[in-house]
């Protein structure tokens, strides 16, 4: 599937940290090299299958925790096998890597292999972001719930949501600039994370109150999406 998904805010992936993320059931090791390159790798060492999130970032390389094989940023090519330090690792010794970029404050990943993916959808200038929330519902249920309206702000109690593409929805008054964009991350086929990007600024004193309103609204969306998903699977209402 040649599609980009936001998996994290850029600030969640500081240098020298290897983060664990899930996209469409694919476990990812996401890390930033010292030179700034964003890597999203299959979370599995090609040697003996150990999760690379146990490993450590060594500048431009990631070092596996089990036998300390080293893999180069961007290519995933193995550069050193300490058991045989004099031998150059074969070009076939590499981690499976996915396309990853940082745009508008988010880390975007594309799981498509073998084709060069086009750039991700650009989001309007992001000035702030909400807390990302986890929803126990498939992406389509979250998307439909959002398309039915996003309840935020007293001045416009139900803002319309219009679709830019299936996984990136903006909300606001259609005659004004977008106020918020939702980036939907399908964690698995039945779990979704909603990332919220805000496009306007407010006084620092009003900022927390605004974030609280968004958190509450996103919570409403979560509850409704989970209710719909449960109804769709015949599971009935869950507590």
């Amino acid at each position: 599937m040649n599609r980009w998904f936001a998996v994290a805010r850029g600030t969640e992936v500081p240098r020298r940290h290897v983060g664990h993320y899930l996209l469409l059931g694919q476990e990812l090791a996401v890390w930033r090299s010292d030179s700034g390159a964003i890597n999203a790798w299959e979370n599995r060492c090609p040697h003996r299958g150990v999760r690379l999130t146990l490993g450590s970032c060594e500048g431009e390389e990631l070092r596996c925790r089990y036998h300390a094989w080293r893999f180069a940023s961007v290519s995933g090519q193995c550069t050193l096998i300490p058991a045989h330090p004099g031998q150059k690792p074969a070009s076939t010794v590499r981690v499976r890597v996915f396309a990853a970029v940082e745009h508008d404050g988010f880390i975007w990943v594309n799981l498509a292999q073998g084709e060069s993916p086009t750039a991700p959808t650009r989001v309007a200038h992001v000035l702030d972001s909400t807390r990302s929330i986890f929803v126990d519902a498939p992406l389509y249920a979250v998307r439909e719930t959002l398309l039915d309206g996003y309840p935020v702000d007293s001045t416009a109690s139900r803002l319309a949501v219009w679709s830019k593409d299936a996984y990136c929805l903006s909300a606001g008054n259609p005659d004004h600039a977008a106020l918020v964009t939702f980036l939907l991350q399908p964690v698995t086929d039945f779990q979704t994370v909603i990332h919220g990007a805000l496009h306007t600024t407010v006084e620092e004193t009003a900022r927390l109150a605004r974030l609280r309103r968004h958190n509450a609204a996103m919570g409403t969306v979560r509850d409704e999406a989970e209710r719909r998903a449960a109804a769709a699977t015949g599971g009935g209402a869950t507590a």
Binding site: E27, N43, R44, R48, G49, V50, R51, L54, R65, Y66
Partner: peptide, 9 residues
């Protein structure tokens, strides 16, 4: 043990 429990599959 943590190595073994983090091997996939």
């Amino acid at each position: 043990r943590p190595i073994l429990e983090n091997q996939l599959p």
